[in-house]
Write a protein that binds this DNA or RNA. Structure first.
Ligand SMILES: [Mn+2]
Ligand SMILES: [Mn+2]
Ligand SMILES: [Zn+2]
Ligand SMILES: [Zn+2]
Lengths: 155, 155
DNA sequence: TTACCATATGAATATCATTATCAAAAAAGG
DNA sequence: CCTTTTTTGATAATGATATTCATATGGTAA
């Protein structure tokens, strides 16, 4: 899978079109609307949230929730979006043209901070190796209370 | 919440009874059967798997799946069991009288290896601190291919 | 022990996010 | 254009988990 870090939207679009063509799939206005909405809003969306935003940004289009689910799956399979699963709170998606990172999540307000830590990544590989595994992926989420919520709680 | 590391079953039972009493809840044979089954099988269970094993181990009892869900939620709230959510594969539960650990999961056969790494835990606290968070919890799952599955794949 | 009453239970039903179905619409390629 | 294939939105189906409710059971105090 190609490295998509820091691509512009046009570059991302070209990449998407290549993938579609290679798989005999079609480039549709719904698929473009979903990709561009994700690109312009590099946050973390549930399928439902994204569905609502896409409809708001593209009132001229007819977009169904099923298409949002289908397109997110397609984009994720091809590495154009990534997802984090937040236990009971469901799955959230984000555009994948940013460098790898993990997430620090406020348990009170839901705020998500992205971070990266090379040392931890190295240690993860080491742990996998010690146990005879070839590491393919990892999930690391830190949960806590953010500065603001700490203030509100002490009131 | 009390530290439950390495408690015997009897100690765990006493703890459970104290929690129940403090909350005006009752000690039932179903609740005991679920806790003892988890204690005697310190693996990772889906609610459904555990339901089947409890029925097998306690054929004299009538146990419904709803009670298994309710009891797992109760035990988890009170720190007697812990869970890991494996994305699409659902939630798995295990008895919580073992030291803290994270999980290394084979994407091919589902095998789960437990590990602990003090350095990573330290780095996690440091990251939270740098971002103004008070760390309350974390989730770390490493995904890979285990030794056996690597062999099978190369055949 | 017994009697009382709050809580727990199992079976059935509801919920809710996600997925599948299907007839109509749109894209790709000549 | 025209043809073929894929895509779409509406709707129904699915499946894991939660809730409802009538009955059963545990705790407690006489
Ligand atoms: Mn992110
Ligand atoms: Mn474990
Ligand atoms: Zn917060
Ligand atoms: Zn394996």
């Amino acid at each position: 899978m190609k490295n998509l870090e820091m691509l512009t939207y046009d570059e991302l679009l070209v990449e998407f079109k290549n993938i579609l063509k290679a798989d005999g799939l079609k480039f549709t206005s719904q698929r473009e609307a979903i990709l561009s909405t994700l690109y312009e809003n590099p946050q973390h969306f549930t399928s439902e949230n994204l569905y609502m935003l896409v409809k708001q940004k593209h009132p001229e289009l007819s977009v169904g929730i099923a298409t949002v689910y289908r397109t997110l799956a397609l984009l994720e399979e091809n590495g154009l979006v990534s997802s984090i699963s937040l236990g009971i709170q469901g799955k959230k998606f984000e555009i994948a043209n940013k460098p790898h990172h993990d997430h620090l999540i406020c348990e009170s307000c839901g705020k998500i901070v992205e971070f990266e830590n090379e040392k931890i990544e190295d240690l993860q590989h080491q742990i996998a190796k010690e146990n005879g595994f070839v590491l393919t992926d990892h999930l690391m989420q830190l949960y806590g209370i953010c500065t603001e919520c700490q203030k509100n709680q002490s009131k």
